[in-house]
Design a protein around this nucleic acid. Structure first.
Lengths: 213, 213
DNA sequence: TTTTATACTGCTTATTATATCAGTATTAAT
DNA sequence: ATTAATACTGATATAATAAGCAGTATAAAA
């Protein structure tokens, strides 16, 4: 099965979000409004494509006839109901590469609302203002962009950190939530060694952050 | 909340079934067909009554606008690998009583190191210094004591809160981790309405702390 | 370069669903 | 015995929603 494009992915996520929120899927018009499309057809054609890729099933003609496919083909093979915990990330190697897998959190990904989730140990207290502390396990949704101001896992020179990301025309601003840390600013052109790994979805904090799978 | 009549119960079950089966609720016409009603009004009047009793919420005017109210015992089966999320705790009733169960976190208790765990929604920011924020789900190990200075879930006059507990010879001191909150001190002899429910084991924080089991 | 897939606008029509009005019959509770 | 609440039939108006047709623009693939 092919992957979704960015736009398709956003639409899928919105549907998924509605589903969780309301217990039923959105109508095409609701999707249109959310994405500020002028036309229903924009929605429609997307849905058809997303269906073709197998992520949803359209109940043609019926109101709110969007069904999320039961197994949104996670790339996780070990166990279906778990989130891979990544260890050290090597720059250059795709994060999804198996060599990074350190462990698996025995938590169904649906709990954190998404496909393609992974988890990381949080090092340092740079996001303490957001209630994220050293040693926590952060759950991240794999994607290479985030909305302005969202918290993302960012790869900076071999190191992964969580930061709030503000992307502007020519630069990338990474803000910590701790007055002791300075903001980082990168010009876009020489930001080769910066990489957004995914969007912060939440945390799990156990007494020692160790467990058995 | 009053109980449903037989017929209402069957209709509720059908809705619930559709929900599980299709991912979205049935239309009124689908309900009619399933029960071989001749009239849509039969359905409608039932729905209105079921809503009045609080088991569903009707999104008037919208297609498939039936939302199942989270009705724990009916919808969710307890599995060994889950942690019960308790709703409102009634003083006097043992916390382990089923009536308190609101939902189940699909997380194996072993992950938080123990049997007899339960979870609670955190209200307020009194423990923000410990990185526990309003809306988080706190995982608690059921026990009626804690070590000096540990964080516990404490029942104070109907309300459950997390506090650091310091027990001395004749008094019980409850400390918040937020300068805006005052410490609470109770003399042992009149601490009848204080009850330690368990020891804080950790937290789970998802985007909206809602999920489907 | 041509083709193909994606990402849309705008308008119209057909269908699906819900709301509402007007009744009847049955049972449980004053 | 009378009132409520429940459990329906039937018909119709209206709104909510999806489908269809005809296009434009852009980027990626062949």
């Amino acid at each position: 099965m092919k992957g979704l494009t960015d736009k398709q992915s956003k639409i899928y996520d919105f549907i998924s979000e509605c589903q969780r929120e309301n217990g039923y899927p959105p109508t095409q018009a609701e999707i249109r409004d959310h994405f500020r499309f002028a036309s229903l057809n924009a929605v429609r054609s997307h849905l058809v494509l997303i269906e073709k890729k197998g992520y949803i099933r359209l109940n043609f003609g019926k109101a709110r006839g969007i069904k999320l496919s039961s197994s949104p083909k996670l790339l996780i093979r070990k166990t279906k109901e778990s989130i891979p915990l990544l260890g050290r990330i090597s720059a250059g190697v795709p994060i999804w590469a198996e060599q990074h897998f350190e462990d698996f959190l025995p938590i169904p990904p649906s709990m954190f609302g998404g496909r393609e989730l992974f988890a990381l140990h949080v090092c340092g207290d740079s996001m303490i203002g957001a209630g994220i502390r050293n040693g926590d396990i952060a759950v991240i949704k794999k994607q290479d962009w985030v909305e302005r101001g969202e918290i993302a896992a960012v790869l900076i020179d071999q190191e992964v950190t969580l930061k709030r990301v503000f992307l502007s025309a020519d630069s990338l601003l990474l803000k910590s939530e701790n007055p002791d840390f300075e903001d980082l600013k990168y010009l876009k052109k020489n930001s080769d060694f910066i990489r957004i790994l995914g969007r912060y979805q939440g945390i799990v904090r156990t007494r020692n952050n160790r467990y058995r799978t």
